[in-house]
Structure formats: C-alpha cells, structure tokens
C-alpha cells in the first residue's frame, strides 16, 4: 500500500465561540507505524495549535485518550492508522458533555466511581506489624481481571443504558464494585449493595455486552454486572426466606 497522506476529520467545538460542533479536516502524512494519536499530535504541532484533546502515556495504560474513531470508541494511542482508509473521522466519546473539541466532561463518572466505595472494608483489621493478609493465587485470580480497568470510559461511550439512563452507575464503576466484592480480604459488599443493587440501571442492563466488546483491557464489565445481579438476587431471596439472617 502506498498512501502518502490521510485526511482526519475531527469534531471541533469551543463553547466560547461556537454555537454548535462542526468538523475540521486536516491532511496528515501516512505513516505505517503511527497510531491515530500520532497523527493528531502531528496536527497539533504543525497545523492547528487550537486542537484540543487529552493524552499522556502513549502506551494504553493512563486512559486519557479515549475517542470515537470511525464510529467506534477506542484509545487513540492503541489504534493504528494503517487499519483505516484514507479518511479517519474522530469524535469525542459519546454519552458525555463535550467540554471542548475531543475533551469531554467526566465529573459525573468520577462521582459514580467514588459512590461504589471502591476500597477494602477489611474482615479483620490488621496492623502493619502483623504483616500481609494471606491470599492464595486462586483467590487473587477470582477478582484480578476486574482490577485491570484504566477508567478510559470507552464502555460508557458504548453502553446504551448510560445514554438512556443518566442515573446508571455504569459498567466501569460496577465492575470495580464487583472487584472489591470478590476480594477475599473484603467484607464491604453489604455497604456497596445500597448503590449497586438499588441502582436504576443495573436491572435494566440488557446484557448487550457493548461495554465488554470495546474494553481495551478485557475487564468484561458485562460479566461483572451479570454476576452482581445474580448475587443480589440470591441475597434478596435469602433475606426473604431467612429474615433472621439479617440481624
């Protein structure tokens, strides 16, 4: 393939001067090794200093550079130019307000992440002098996958429930709650249940699985949500059948 250049169509919006978003088109050199972020950086350095986006690590771990590229939510540092044609359309993540250009407002997500109490509620308080909690490799394997979330928010962009139901805690936050619930060192599930099980969205999650499909770290939030539903249902019926257990 001998392509010299590629056109980037990038969504632009500056609330200070634009009444609505529009697309700017930039012609950038084609480079077989470049990720899309490299092409965007080329625009910023050479063509347009006003183009606005977030990025940092360039190795798919900081979670800053999530964007919608040709309709798919992806990390722009982990998506190669060579996998696209001569035109690449770049938009901000969906289901978030646009702050400017490709930068979206994520306050709501950060709030939700905190709401699931994502920290260890210890079974037994231990002092540092007593050393670490014993956790077998098998016990670690139970929750490890759910620790891999980088908060890149691709799943929120892909999830139909997040779009329909602003109260929905959302895939990443639910997966994180599940991660702590499954941790052998933790007994915080009951405390998290208030937010997790009573959340309007979880019971409406239709297991479309879009969140898991777009996840760059194979966290599989959809599985976490389904497992949470089952666990909460079991709790409900256990409470119903054995009311004395609650005390």
């Amino acid at each position: 393939m001998s392509r010299d250049t590629v056109q980037l169509e990038i969504l632009r919006y500056d609330p200070e001067k634009d009444s609505e978003p529009y697309f700017s088109t930039y012609e950038v050199p084609f480079n077989d090794d470049w990720v899309v972020l490299d092409a965007i950086n080329y625009v910023k350095e050479n063509l347009d200093r006003t183009l606005t986006y977030r990025w940092s690590c360039h190795m798919a771990v900081c979670g800053s550079c999530g964007m919608v590229i040709n309709g798919e939510p992806v990390l722009s540092c982990h998506t190669f130019m060579r996998d696209y044609g001569d035109k690449i359309r770049i938009e901000p993540l969906q289901n978030f307000p646009v702050e400017r250009d490709l930068v979206v407002v994520i306050d709501d997500f950060v709030e939700k992440l905190g709401s699931v109490k994502p920290y260890i509620v210890p079974k037994v308080e231990k002092t540092v002098d007593e050393g670490e909690y014993i956790q077998s490799p098998a016990q670690l394997a139970v929750f490890k996958q759910y620790t891999a979330c980088i908060n890149c928010l691709l799943c929120y962009s892909a999830c139909p429930q997040v779009g329909l139901n602003p109260g929905f805690v959302g895939p990443a936050a639910l997966a994180l709650a599940h991660r702590y619930n499954l941790d052998s060192r933790d007994v915080g599930r009951a405390a998290r249940e208030d937010v997790v099980a009573s959340n309007p969205g979880i019971w409406e999650c239709s297991f479309v699985g879009a969140c898991s499909e777009v996840c760059p770290k194979s966290v599989d939030p959809a599985a976490a949500i389904q497992q949470t539903k089952i666990a909460s249902t079991v709790d409900y019926f256990t409470d119903f059948l054995t009311p004395w257990r609650k005390q």
Binding site: Q135, L140, Y180
Partner: peptide
Amino acid sequence: PRELTLMEHWGCPWSRKPDGRV
C-alpha cells in the same frame, strides 16, 4: 516493607506465592 504491606492492606493485588504470601 511497612509501606508495601500497607498497600497490601489497602487492596493492592500483589502477585502471590502458592502459600498466599506476597
């Protein structure tokens, strides 16, 4: 070692030996 143990108490998923120690 005290700080690293504290991280363990706070949930850091340290890789483990078969006996469950870090």
